[in-house]
Amino acid sequence: MDKLVYVAMTGAKENMLAQAKSANNLANVSTTGFRADLQHARSLQAFGDGFPSRVFSLTERPGYRFDSGTIQTTGNDFDVAVKDQGWIAVQMPTGEEAYTRRGDLKINANGLLENGAGHLVLGNGGPIAFPPFEKVDIGVDGTITIKPQGAADNEMLILDRIKLVNPDNGQLMKNDFGLFVRKDGGIEPPDAAVQVVSGAIESSNVNAVEEMVNMISLSRQFELQVKMMQTAEQNDQSISQLVRMS
């Protein structure tokens, strides 16, 4: 069969992968702090007998959009949004450290602070545990201050400080939990310069209109690749008929 079919197949494969990324982005357009995935592919010459006149598609290392989403005021004392650059350190289900921009925080049944995805928020010494309290305040530097249950109005206790980090975004990758980790597997140290906005959350940075346009464009490209495969099959059948006639 003509090598055209393999060239078209690689193009169709990359179109399908790109469509899956766009579909995932659209599905998370309302997810707090979500970072959109990017799909990259490049052309690669196919070397072999003769001249390398054919080009295959090759998936590049995945990338992500790191621009900030819109900060939305909620009035919830537990909600925090990271200002500008920076991340909130959380604990993955595996017990390892990872980073997110999702700041819709709450206290779970075990008295531990977690975000809307169920990831435990890390403080100076690990997950942040809350004793019985009446009031909570989260400062711009992530410091958590509470009024213990039964305490006087002027008796405030500094409970912990949310671990805020500011790694090089180029050294981060997204894992299967939808969280970001360092590519070298290292742990990022706290950064005192990172600040948060209390009583607010950051929206997803997915541009729904842009993703819809990408989906339509990728769909048209996929149709083109399929037509090329059909053309390759027709060429193969025509050549077979000519051989039989000879």
Rank of each mutant, 00 (worst) to 15 (best):
Y99N: 06
M1Y: 10
T74F: 09
E233G: 10
T94E: 14
S246K: 14
L218N: 02
I187H: 06
Q45A: 15
I144F: 01
Y99F: 12
G126P: 04
S238L: 13
T143I: 09
R35W: 00
E14A: 15
A89I: 03
L105K: 04
N124F: 02
I158T: 14
L172F: 12
Y99W: 06
A81Y: 07
I239A: 07
T32Y: 01
N25L: 09
D2H: 08
I71Q: 11
P93T: 07
Q237C: 00
N205T: 08
G86Y: 06
L4I: 15
V197N: 12
F78D: 04
K174D: 09
V197D: 10
N110M: 12
R54P: 02
P190A: 09
K135M: 11
N235H: 08
D176Q: 14
N76C: 01
I88L: 12
V194I: 04
V206Y: 03
R42E: 14
A12R: 03
A129L: 04
N115Y: 00
G86F: 01
K83H: 06
Q72R: 14
F180P: 10
V213H: 09
G33Y: 02
P131G: 07
G103T: 06
K21A: 13
L113W: 03
V90R: 04
S238T: 15
S30V: 03
L159S: 08
W87R: 03
M92F: 00
D160I: 03
F133S: 10
T31K: 06
G48N: 08
G118L: 07
G199H: 11
S22D: 09
D141L: 05
Q241D: 15
I88T: 01
K3M: 12
E14M: 13
T32S: 06
Q230E: 15
D104C: 02
A81W: 05
N207R: 08
M16V: 13
A89H: 05
M9F: 10
I187E: 11
E188L: 06
E233C: 03
V90E: 01
L17F: 11
Q225L: 02
E96P: 01
K147W: 00
D77N: 12
F66S: 00
D184E: 09
V7N: 07
S246G: 14
A23K: 07
L58A: 13
D77G: 02
I239W: 03
G142P: 01
L159M: 12
M215Y: 06
D77E: 12
I128Q: 04
I239Y: 08
L113G: 02
L58I: 03
S30Y: 04
D77C: 01
T231C: 07
R182W: 01
I158D: 09
K147T: 10
S57C: 06
L164D: 08
E97T: 15
N214H: 13
L159H: 05
S198W: 00
G170D: 12
I146D: 03
K3I: 14
Y6A: 01
Q39D: 13
S204I: 04
S246N: 10
S68I: 05
K174E: 12
S203Q: 14
G86P: 08
A200L: 11
S43E: 13
Q19S: 07
A23S: 15
T231A: 13
Q195R: 13
G139E: 07
K3F: 10
G123N: 04
V140L: 08
D84G: 05
P190F: 05
